[in-house]
């Protein structure tokens, strides 16, 4: 492969998305899980920007811009919830948060 192909960034995106997903599946620290979700969103951004590059469009770039903005909002809410959690109970281990079940 002599040129930069769309497959390149698609695989990068897929890899980062999967890594993020696996992180969400395996980690127990709520903050790390949160970081993994951010990683997944970044992977999505790579896809969008890559597709935009491939099509010579800007639509994908702008979509990615909005994803970053929304991710920031999500981060603020998420950290707020985590703060409230630690205020109630001194833990960030999601396995300890299981009063509601069955």
């Amino acid at each position: 492969m002599n040129e930069l192909m769309p497959e390149h960034f698609m695989f990068l995106s897929a890899a980062l998305f999967i890594i993020g997903m696996v992180g969400v599946l395996t980690r127990r620290n709520v903050l790390v899980i949160f970081m993994c979700v951010e990683l997944m969103l970044t992977a999505v951004n790579i896809s969008f920007i890559g597709f935009a590059w491939e099509f010579s469009q800007l639509t994908g770039q702008i979509f990615a811009l909005f994803i970053i903005a929304i991710a920031a909002a999500e981060a603020v809410i998420g950290l707020g919830i985590i703060m409230a959690l630690t205020r109630q109970r001194d833990t960030v281990d999601i396995d300890e948060v299981r009063e509601l079940r069955q």
Partner: peptide, 9 residues
């Protein structure tokens, strides 16, 4: 809080 955390994550 637990409900919110689960829903959020």
């Amino acid at each position: 809080i637990e409900g919110a955390l689960k829903y959020f994550l």
